[in-house]
Measured scan of single mutants.
Amino acid sequence: QSYDVTDELPLPPGWEMTFTATGQRYFLNHIEKITTWQDPRKAMNQP
């Protein structure tokens, strides 16, 4: 797995990073009650 500086940034409020039983990373948004494979920190860093 390649290193990404985004991995060091804190998640936005309400978000949690977790893993499936097979080790795949995904993200939970407790405020909007959604899950996604997309890292919400990457969207924050788009110009």
Results as ranks from 00 to 15, higher is better:
14 G>L: 01
27 F>M: 01
26 Y>C: 03
13 P>H: 14
4 D>T: 09
11 L>K: 02
10 P>D: 11
5 V>Y: 06
15 W>G: 03
22 T>M: 07
39 D>N: 06
29 N>P: 00
30 H>M: 07
13 P>S: 12
13 P>F: 11
30 H>E: 09
24 Q>P: 01
21 A>P: 11
22 T>P: 03
24 Q>G: 07
20 T>I: 01
31 I>T: 14
37 W>H: 05
37 W>V: 06
22 T>Q: 09
15 W>R: 03
5 V>S: 12
5 V>T: 14
19 F>V: 12
28 L>R: 10
43 A>N: 15
46 Q>K: 09
30 H>I: 05
36 T>Q: 05
34 I>N: 06
26 Y>P: 01
29 N>D: 05
7 D>I: 08
29 N>G: 02
15 W>A: 00
32 E>L: 15
2 S>N: 15
44 M>G: 14
21 A>M: 11
36 T>E: 02
38 Q>L: 13
28 L>S: 08
12 P>L: 02
42 K>Q: 10
28 L>W: 05
17 M>R: 07
47 P>L: 15
19 F>M: 08
40 P>F: 00
23 G>D: 06
39 D>G: 02
16 E>G: 07
18 T>D: 14
35 T>V: 05
29 N>T: 01
34 I>P: 01
5 V>K: 13
31 I>Y: 09
45 N>D: 11
32 E>W: 15
11 L>N: 01
16 E>D: 13
9 L>A: 15
7 D>W: 04
38 Q>P: 01
23 G>Q: 04
1 Q>T: 04
29 N>Y: 02
3 Y>P: 15
18 T>F: 10
38 Q>A: 10
46 Q>P: 14
1 Q>D: 14
10 P>W: 05
43 A>Q: 12
33 K>I: 00
5 V>I: 15
7 D>K: 13
35 T>S: 12
2 S>D: 15
9 L>I: 14
26 Y>S: 03
19 F>L: 10
23 G>E: 04
46 Q>W: 12
23 G>C: 01
18 T>K: 15
3 Y>I: 15
1 Q>G: 09
37 W>M: 07
7 D>Y: 07
30 H>F: 04
24 Q>L: 06
32 E>H: 12
11 L>R: 01
33 K>Q: 09
6 T>C: 12
39 D>T: 02
11 L>Y: 04
17 M>N: 03
20 T>S: 10
32 E>F: 15
9 L>G: 13
5 V>A: 11
33 K>E: 05
8 E>F: 06
18 T>M: 12
26 Y>M: 06
41 R>Q: 04
45 N>P: 09
34 I>T: 12
4 D>N: 15
1 Q>I: 14
47 P>G: 03
40 P>K: 01
20 T>E: 05
46 Q>S: 12
43 A>S: 14
11 L>V: 05
42 K>H: 12
10 P>E: 12
16 E>C: 07
5 V>F: 13
12 P>Y: 03
40 P>Y: 00
3 Y>H: 14
19 F>A: 12
9 L>Y: 13
29 N>F: 00
42 K>S: 08
23 G>F: 00
39 D>L: 03
22 T>I: 06
20 T>G: 05
31 I>W: 11
25 R>T: 06
20 T>W: 00
26 Y>I: 05
40 P>M: 00
15 W>H: 01
3 Y>C: 15
34 I>V: 10
44 M>W: 09
1 Q>H: 02
33 K>G: 15
41 R>Y: 00
20 T>H: 04
37 W>P: 04
6 T>F: 11
21 A>T: 13
21 A>Q: 07
23 G>R: 05
25 R>N: 04
29 N>W: 00
18 T>A: 14
38 Q>W: 10
36 T>C: 06
30 H>D: 07
19 F>W: 13
40 P>N: 01
10 P>C: 05
36 T>Y: 00
21 A>V: 08
14 G>Y: 05
41 R>K: 02
17 M>D: 05
23 G>Y: 00
42 K>V: 09
28 L>K: 15
27 F>L: 01
40 P>W: 00
32 E>G: 11
40 P>D: 00
31 I>A: 08
25 R>G: 05
39 D>S: 02
46 Q>L: 13
8 E>H: 08
22 T>C: 13
22 T>R: 09
42 K>E: 12
42 K>F: 09
46 Q>H: 05
22 T>L: 08
39 D>I: 04
25 R>C: 09
19 F>H: 05
19 F>Q: 10
27 F>Q: 00
9 L>N: 14
13 P>W: 07
43 A>F: 14
34 I>A: 06
11 L>P: 03
1 Q>V: 04
12 P>D: 03
20 T>V: 03
31 I>F: 09
34 I>K: 06
2 S>V: 09
29 N>V: 00
13 P>G: 09
3 Y>N: 15
24 Q>T: 08
27 F>T: 01
8 E>A: 13
46 Q>T: 12
38 Q>T: 10
42 K>C: 10
2 S>F: 13
14 G>I: 00
30 H>N: 11
32 E>I: 12
45 N>V: 12
9 L>E: 13
27 F>V: 01
29 N>C: 00
11 L>D: 02
1 Q>R: 06
33 K>P: 00
34 I>C: 11
32 E>A: 15
18 T>H: 07
22 T>Y: 05
37 W>I: 04
32 E>V: 08
46 Q>V: 14
12 P>A: 04
8 E>N: 09
12 P>Q: 04
28 L>C: 09
17 M>G: 05
36 T>A: 05
45 N>S: 11
23 G>H: 04
32 E>K: 14
15 W>E: 02
13 P>M: 08
30 H>Q: 11
30 H>G: 06
41 R>I: 03
42 K>I: 13
15 W>D: 04
23 G>S: 03
33 K>S: 08
21 A>F: 04
36 T>V: 02
21 A>R: 10
34 I>L: 11
35 T>G: 04
35 T>W: 03
43 A>P: 14
13 P>L: 10
41 R>L: 02
18 T>V: 13
17 M>L: 12
7 D>G: 09
10 P>H: 08
41 R>E: 02
28 L>M: 15
43 A>Y: 09
21 A>C: 09
20 T>C: 06
26 Y>D: 02
33 K>N: 13
23 G>L: 00
46 Q>R: 09
7 D>R: 09
12 P>T: 02
18 T>G: 14
35 T>K: 05
33 K>M: 07
9 L>Q: 14
17 M>A: 13
4 D>V: 10
45 N>W: 13
12 P>M: 01
4 D>S: 11
24 Q>H: 03
29 N>A: 00
41 R>S: 04
44 M>A: 14
